[in-house]
Amino acid sequence: MEHPILFISIILEKLGLPVPHTVTGSNLIEQLCTPYMTYTWLVMAFLIIIPKLTMSKLEMVPGSGQNFWEVMIGGLMDFFTENLGESGAKMLFPMMATFFFYIVLANMIGLIPGFMSPTSNLNITLGMTIIVWFTHHFLGFKHHGLHYYKHFMGPSKAMAPFMFVLEIISNLARLISLSMRLFGNIFAKEVLLAVLFMLAGAYFAPLPILCLGVLVSIIQAVVFVLLAVLYCAGAMEEAH
């Protein structure tokens, strides 16, 4: 689905850089100029610059900027502590909170005309999911050592080899379902908005979908982070 107008792509084309008109480019410089890469960098720049501006000096009586971040960080921290415990939450907080802010912003940015959601590309969501997947297995090995294999063996000894195969398959399915759900939801939102905008943009037809888009963006971000946290918690708890 070719987006009607993407302003970063237009700027890059004006600068003489090759912007591919397919999903991915053929060489490195084209791949770096694909819309989902450039918009990812936009989101990253936003997430680096805005907190710097609003939280450059912390005050005892917070202003509106600092207040916002305190509420967000505090809420997320409570949320992680509930699922992971105090130490686990502190350990995983940087990664999970980064995922949350990145996904929320990346989902939301697609609602503005001229922008697209980087998360509507499978490369981005699969990349994040692979990070989560390796992290939760790494945490499992870190907490249980080699006894982590007991997580894959099921309750009874006789069924263990069979259960091992089943667990491997459902673990790989986790990898796909987590990335596909985020990608599918956001891609659907993007395509629906583009189509409605082309069909009846003058009559505000995309408006209800824009409202739903806000809801979907937040819910999908929460669900992604929540499932990542639940996987990590599951890897760290004792085997059944």
């Binding site: 509930e82 796909i176 379902s177 669900v223």
Partner: peptide, 29 residues
């Protein structure tokens, strides 16, 4: 977030994952 809403989100995450995991298990196999 209130407790009720947090619980709602947790259930939403778990149950919305069920169908997808079911389908993708078959596909992965």
């Amino acid at each position: 977030m209130s407790d009720e809403r947090r619980e709602m989100f947790r259930q939403l995450a778990e149950y919305s994952q069920v169908g997808m995991t079911f389908v993708f298990s078959i596909l992965v196999g």
